[in-house]
Design a protein around this nucleic acid. Structure first.
Lengths: 196, 196
DNA sequence: GCTTATTATGAATAATGATTCATTTTTGTT
DNA sequence: AACAAAAATGAATCATTATTCATAATAAGC
C-alpha cells in the first residue's frame, strides 16, 4: 500500500469518527480501529490529533473548491452562477454527509483551540461568492451599492444553516434543488438591478 | 449571598472561560477560579460539566427571547419587524461578545455529544422569524409562495454568519446597523409582493 | 537467500482533570 | 453564647487517553 493511500485511509476514518463523536470525544484508538491500523501508525502520518483535523480540512475543502470551480467554469451569467454554487453546497450533504457534519461542527471552532491555524481554504471557498457578485456588478446585473463582503457571508450563512438543519434532523421537508433555488431566488431578487 | 446569586456567578464565569478556551479545553478549576469559589462548590449547583453548558444555554437564550419579543411588541409592520430582529441579533455581539462566542461555538455541536438534549430554546428563538414571515404573508406584504421554514433558517443563518465573522476577526468593516439593514433589505426585496 | 531499510505494531507511560467527600466555615435560631 | 443546619472547601481519587518507543513484520536491493 502506497504511503498516500494510508494517509487517505486514516483521513477517511477520522471523518467517520469525528462525525460520530466530535473531535474531543473521538479517541485515537477509535480512528485507528476504523482505519484498521495500529494506534502508533497514525503518528507516522500525522504529528498529533489536531494535525489530523487540520489536514482533513485542507484536503477536503481543497477538493470542494476544485469541484465547484469546475462547475462554474462554463457559466457566465452571474445569476446562474450563484444558483450553481447554492446547489453544489447543499449537494455536499447528500454526497458526503459525514464530512459536512465535521466541517460544520469542528471547522468553525477550530480557530478557538488551535491558535496558529488561519483557515485560508475556507476563506477561499466563500470568496468564490464575492467574486461572482463583483462580476455581476461589473456586468451591470447586480446593484452597485450592495456590499460583496456582506453578501458572501449572508449567502453562505443562509445555505449553511439549511445544511446544518438537515444534518441534524432526519429528513428535509423540501428537495435540495427546490431549496437551493428558493434561497438563490430570494438573494437574486434582492441584489439584481431591476426586478422583473 | 443568596443561592441564585452563586448560581448566576458560576454561570457568568463559565461563559467567560468557555468563550476563552472552548468547552472541552475549559477546566472546572478554571471556572471555579474565575467565579472565586472552590472546585467542589460548583457541584453544589450543577450536576456536571455538561450541565453548566446546558443550563447556560437555557437561561441566556431565554433572556434573549424575552428581550427581542419585547422589542417587537409594538411593531406591526412585518418589514420593520425583520429589521428589528436583525439589528437585535447583531447587537448581541456588541453587548455580550463572550456569550455570543459560546453560543456559536458550542451550541450547535451540543446536539452531537449530549444526546438527550433537544435545544428547544434555540428553536423558539428562530421561530420568531417564521412567525413574522407568516404574519407578513397573511397581511399580503409577503409573497405566498415563499417558504417560512426555509426563510427562517436562511435569514438566521445570514445574520449569524456575519456575527461569527465579527466574533473571530478584530473589527467589523461596516457598522452593525448598516449591516443589519443591508441584510434585511436583501431579504425583504426578495420576499415582498411587489418591489418598489 | 541474505542484508538492510522501511513501515507497522500495541503495550507501557505519564499527564490530565472531573468528581467525590471528610473536614471546615458560615449562617441562623433560641 | 451555644448549638444545629447549611454551605463551602480543596486535597485525594481514579478513570481516561494521547503519545512514545522497543520490538516485529514487511519490502527492497543485490
Amino acid at each position: 500500500m502506497r504511503v498516500s493511500d494510508k494517509h487517505q485511509k486514516i483521513t477517511q476514518a477520522a471523518v467517520k469518527v469525528f462525525a460520530r463523536k466530535g473531535f474531543f470525544n473521538a479517541r485515537i484508538s477509535d480512528i485507528a480501529k476504523e482505519a484498521k491500523v495500529a494506534d502508533g501508525t497514525i503518528y507516522l502520518y500525522f504529528n498529533n490529533k489536531y494535525d489530523i483535523l487540520i489536514s482533513l480540512f485542507e484536503d477536503e475543502i481543497g477538493k470542494i473548491i476544485v469541484k465547484v470551480k469546475l462547475l462554474l467554469e462554463n457559466e457566465t451569467d452571474p445569476l446562474k452562477m450563484l444558483e450553481i454554487y447554492a446547489i453544489h453546497h447543499l449537494s455536499l450533504l447528500q454526497d458526503q454527509k459525514e464530512l459536512v457534519e465535521v466541517l460544520q461542527m469542528e471547522l468553525r471552532q477550530s480557530n478557538k483551540f488551535i491558535k496558529e491555524y488561519r483557515n485560508t481554504k475556507f476563506i477561499e471557498y466563500i470568496d468564490i461568492i464575492s467574486e461572482i457578485v463583483h462580476k455581476g456588478q461589473d456586468s451591470g446585473h447586480f446593484r452597485k451599492e450592495i456590499m460583496p463582503g456582506v453578501i458572501k457571508r449572508a449567502f453562505f450563512g443562509a445555505l449553511d444553516e439549511m445544511s446544518r438543519l438537515w444534518a441534524l434532523s432526519a429528513k428535509p421537508h423540501y428537495t435540495l434543488e427546490e431549496t437551493a433555488k428558493h434561497i438563490s431566488d430570494i438573494f437574486l431578487r434582492g441584489i439584481v438591478v431591476r426586478n422583473s
